[in-house]
Amino acid sequence: MSANVNHSLPLEYQTEQNRLNILGFWIFLGAEIVLFATLFAVYGVLGHRYAGGPTPSDIFKLNDVLIETLLLLTSSFTCGLAVFFMRQRNMKQLLVWFVITLLLGAGFLFMEIREFIHYVHEGATMQTSAFLSSFFVLLGTHGAHVTFGIIWAVMLIIQLLQRGLTPVTARKMFIISLYWHFLDVVWIFIFTFVYLKGMVG
């Protein structure tokens, strides 16, 4: 399995096991799409059931949400740069852009947690209404994914420093970039269907 190295392919695709892992991760992302689609469907059903509690326009602060969005979208771009430099075998640039990606991700998390604390102080908790239950679980699931991604990425940075760029570390880097871009796509849907729609509707 670890034999059969094809040097004409990008580093992360060179071994058979790497090709299997990358396909497996794409299928895993398929499962993640179903997972988030279900959460969006739940939000679609429950999102207007305020039960006398606050409505989106009562609590959402679009300024903060816009900053979160910019942070996360930019992090997707820097993540793409990191993979670009990985393909160039430029370890230093790879690490620089990858760390920037994670800092942007951490900034996003900081803003999101601050937003949640603000809501809770306003009396809008997960237990208040079906709208807020589905809101917090949908966004919380996304935020938990980002948190998990940052911890995972830190582990990978340690491995990159220990081992340099090998087919295995390159594959791990490539897979985490897929994961990161996926979370960005989910955020675009959250921004559109939760925040924008909440403010308009």
Partner: peptide, 18 residues
């Protein structure tokens, strides 16, 4: 699990659950 352990309202009869 959230409904049973943390008091959310996804499937409850009260507070807008379905």
């Amino acid at each position: 699990t959230f409904d049973r352990l943390y008091g959310t309202h996804f499937f409850t009869l009260s507070s807008g659950g379905s």
